[in-house]
Amino acid sequence: MNPVFNMDAATLSPVALFLQADIVVKIVMGGLLIASIWTWALIIAFWRRLGRIRKGMTGFERDFWKAEDIDAFYKAEADRDLPSARVFAAGVKEWRRSTAGGSIDKSGTRERLATAMGAAAALEIDRISDRLNILATIGSVAPFVGLFGTVWGIMRSFTGIAQAQNSSLAVVAPGIAEALFATAIGLFAAIPAVIAYNRFSHGVNRIEAALGRFADGFHTTLSRQLDGSR
Rank of each mutant, 00 (worst) to 15 (best):
V194R: 11
G118I: 03
G186D: 01
F5N: 14
W65H: 15
A215P: 03
W95Y: 12
R54H: 12
T159W: 08
D79L: 03
G153M: 10
L19A: 14
L123K: 15
R127S: 14
T115D: 07
V151G: 02
L50Y: 14
M117K: 05
G30R: 01
G59D: 13
L19Q: 12
T99I: 05
R199V: 14
I207C: 05
I27G: 13
F88G: 07
L113C: 06
V24P: 07
F88H: 13
G146C: 08
L169Q: 05
F64N: 07
T11A: 12
G228A: 06
G108V: 11
G31A: 14
F148S: 08
P174L: 02
M29F: 15
D8H: 11
D8Q: 12
I27A: 13
A16Q: 06
K26A: 09
A190T: 04
I134T: 06
L33T: 15
L226A: 06
I195E: 05
I44V: 15
D81P: 05
R213F: 02
I134F: 08
A189H: 00
A184E: 02
G101R: 09
G102L: 09
I44F: 05
V87D: 00
K26E: 14
G59L: 10
L123N: 13
D71L: 10
G186W: 00
A184V: 12
L32H: 06
